[in-house]
């Protein structure tokens, strides 16, 4: 392997498909999206990214004030919020790392007053599982009984 090549790892981040579609409709800029994705990269199985504001600022080449604005914006959208000076929590209803059970547990342990993601009703309606296709419509002897 050449030194400038990086092997993709097998670490999987589970993300909610509906919220991913919801993110596309938000007014997040490219840098804000990259910061959000970077937090998802840094988060552990509890959904906590241990990064400080200065660390994010130096990683993306932006100012500390701008990072504060971005985290506030992400909190308003319910995607991620600051727990303390060096910890940012990614909403487990949006993304989780590790097994499915860990993801579910992290979401269950979320306090009731945590920021919530408000999704448009049409996105939710589109995400509902579709009923199975009707079969036997064209057959003469098998008809659907109401």
């Amino acid at each position: 392997m050449e030194p400038n090549e990086v092997l993709l790892d097998d670490v999987v981040v589970n993300t909610n498909s509906v919220v991913l579609g919801h993110i596309a409709s938000l007014d997040l800029s490219g840098v804000e999206l990259r910061i959000l994705f970077w937090l998802m990269f840094r988060m552990d199985s509890n959904g906590i990214a241990r990064v400080s504001r200065e660390e994010i600022a130096s990683a993306f080449g932006v100012g500390d004030t701008y990072v504060s604005k971005v985290t506030t914006k992400l909190k308003n959208h319910g995607l991620a919020w600051r727990e303390d000076h060096k910890r940012i929590r990614v909403n487990p209803h949006f993304a989780g790392r590790g097994s499915h059970e860990e993801w579910q547990r992290t979401a269950d342990e979320l306090p009731a007053d945590a920021p919530q993601i408000l999704i448009q009703p049409e996105l939710l309606a589109a995400a509902q599982p579709k009923p199975p296709k009707a079969t036997g419509q064209g057959r003469r002897h098998l008809r659907v009984v109401q």
Binding site: V13, G30, F37, L123
Partner: peptide
């Protein structure tokens, strides 16, 4: 979860998004 659908994304994708400044 909301909508009942989820997507698995490799963690490396997020670093690619950052490193390539998409």
């Amino acid at each position: 979860f909301v909508g009942g659908a989820f997507q698995q994304v490799t963690r490396s994708l997020f670093t690619i998004v950052k490193n390539f400044e998409l």
